[in-house]
Amino acid sequence: MGNESIRAAYRARAAEYTRILGSVEDMHELDQQRIRRWAAGIHGQMIDAGCGPGHWTNYLHQQGSRIEGIDLVPEFIESARARFPDVLFRVGSFRDMDFPDKTLQGVLAWYSLIHIHPAEVPMTLKELSRVLAPRGQLLLGFFDGPSGTRFQHAVTTAYYWSTKHMGQLLAEAGFDLLEVETRQDSGKRPHAAITATLR
């Protein structure tokens, strides 16, 4: 899906989304642990790419990370700035980021790529690799399943990825895999997370 379609879908439901999913306390404890542990090993500037309501950005800011949140949806950024005034947020696309080459030490993309058409995911990963310094780290969260299979997410069309296929795409984008996780929680779609470092 293109940026405009995704933006429009989330703008229509931004307040509802923030109310239901805009707090770290609503997130799985294992996800909190994983994201916290990942960020603790990163020293330098980070971004939360596709930060949504900004709860993960604020969470890592509170842990001492130097982090900024970016998102396509102005309503998410407005709300995040109001709720977390000490944290930096800006409207922007992680498909074409306003950061110089090789300047970031970490990129969190937690369920941020799920709405991107499979054909566009490789170029998106290349953009994430562009802004990372060598040995910078990426943490991806996504729905685990047959790669490219679409489903109707609560907001708009989303896609599954297998960890094997996503790992291959990351390798092609210049990353080495550090850790791969999958989990099946009762009543939820299968979850996957990959930590990778830029060569």
Rank of each mutant, 00 (worst) to 15 (best):
W56Y: 13
G92H: 06
R37F: 03
L30R: 13
M123C: 11
G106Y: 06
D26N: 14
H117K: 08
M123D: 15
P53F: 04
D98A: 11
R135M: 09
M27E: 07
R95F: 02
S65L: 15
L113Y: 04
Q63K: 07
A40V: 01
R81H: 02
F94Y: 05
E127D: 06
S129H: 06
A40W: 13
S79Y: 03
P122H: 05
G92A: 09
L132P: 00
L88G: 14
F89T: 05
G50C: 09
L125P: 01
D48Q: 11
G92N: 07
V131Q: 01
R90Y: 02
R95N: 05
V107E: 02
E29T: 10
L60D: 07
P74G: 06
H28A: 09
G50A: 15
S93N: 14
P134K: 14
M97K: 09
H117S: 05
I70E: 05
E75G: 05
P53G: 12
V87A: 00
R83D: 00
Y111H: 15
L132K: 02
S93P: 12
G52K: 07
S93K: 03
W56C: 05
F84P: 00
H55D: 09
L72V: 11
E78D: 08
P53A: 10
E127N: 06
W110D: 03
P74R: 02
D71N: 11
I77P: 00
D31L: 07
I67M: 15
F99H: 13
E29D: 10
D48P: 08
G41M: 09
L60S: 08
P122E: 03
Q63D: 06
V121C: 03
V87R: 00
R36I: 10
N58Q: 14
S112T: 10
I114R: 12
V87L: 02
L132M: 04
